[in-house]
Design a binder for these strands. Structure first.
Lengths: 200, 200
DNA sequence: CCGTTGTTTAACAAATTTGTCAAACATTAT
DNA sequence: ATAATGTTTGACAAATTTGTTAAACAACGG
């Protein structure tokens, strides 16, 4: 039956992604993943042979999602810069509400593998889209639309403002004594805040 | 000899902190910690009785460092807002270069302990200093020095811009094809960038 | 020198997590 | 109905990580 992956195989992988990317449970065991998928643990071995194979597939998916996201910074040539940023923000916000811990998962994997023997990100690269985006940012700076700085700094500003508050949600909910609802509301309001902060 | 903790005890705890906070190796085993400390593994049990006790002490230290850092947002009443922010940024930058992964470690611990039975942050609270800082931010907004928004948003902006680029360093070094030196240089330049971004 | 105390070590035991295998089960085609 | 194929399960084995213990070692005061 060639490569037709079964339902349970997908269930297992989805469960792993949920635990890793959505719940930030980086130490989840195969047992916990199997439980989350509602299947017998040995099926993980049946479908993936080993824990590491599963984890590497999850990692691969994360890398693809990451490059896709960065690609989404591209778009039709002729739309205004502000609109373009808005769309990028929307893509990012949607993503980080679905998979808030994906970035950190990647970082965590890179850190775990001491001495970079495995080269977790071997096949990730600075896509042309990203380069184009940086170029575009530079153009806007020259136009005076946004503050002048190295384009990479603008990109990092953007990603920081988008991602960090989602990552530290459990921590800052406590520190600020916010309820779930309050924090979610606050995150929603950030779309406008980020625009105001970066594109005054 | 009461509570005079021995040198090796400190070595072990420092090694754990180094692995967790500095290297982001959240899955480090007691063996790896002992190795990093240059001591026999069973000494972890001798001094801390169990792995979890050590980890909880490390956690406790992280919580204290966190509240201390937030306290450092306070300061003499009569210095200009900009200077105050500058000092806060310097404190944060220094901290995050020493312990870049501390925030995430806290978040990670909170996520690991499913259903919040342990209440990892039981003893952390919104300090008066933090409240005062938020109030100060609001005052500045009314003065027109900074963009109007909920003060918490300004705080999150600040912390995001400071912390995220450090956290994702291994990831973005790859994506942007930066060398160590280049990335470090870029981080250094962020002090001015952040000020420019938040306090136009 | 001896005894006391605290530290370190290796060998072992226990616990946890992962992997294997054969048998049971289900589905479909013949 | 039965053979063939793929799926699921439980029992077991292996591997990894953590915890315990007794003995060796070191330092110090009497």
């Amino acid at each position: 039956m060639a490569v037709k992956d079964s339902i349970t195989e997908r269930h297992i992988k989805e469960a792993a992604k949920k635990l890793f990317f959505k719940e930030g449970r980086f130490k989840a065991t195969t047992q916990e993943i199997a439980d989350a998928a509602g299947v017998n643990r040995t099926l993980v071995n049946y479908y993936f042979r080993s824990r590491d194979v599963l984890f590497d597939q999850v990692l691969s998916d994360a890398k693809n999602a990451m490059t896709d996201r960065l690609k989404s910074s591209a778009g039709e040539e002729n739309i205004p810069f502000r609109l373009r940023i808005e769309r990028f923000i929307d893509v990012m916000l949607e993503h980080s509400s679905a998979y808030p811990y994906m970035d950190i998962y990647l970082v965590s994997r890179m850190n775990d593998d001491i001495n970079q023997q495995n080269d977790v990100l071997a096949d990730i690269k600075k896509t042309d889209d990203l380069k184009a985006f940086l170029k575009l940012i530079e153009t806007e700076m020259n136009k005076g639309t946004i503050e002048k700085m190295p384009p990479v700094q603008f990109l990092l500003n953007l990603l920081s403002l988008l991602t960090y508050p989602v990552i530290v949600q459990p921590l800052f909910k406590k520190i600020l004594q916010f309820s779930d609802r309050q924090y979610q509301q606050m995150l929603k309001e950030r779309r406008a805040i980020i625009l105001k902060t970066l594109l005054k």
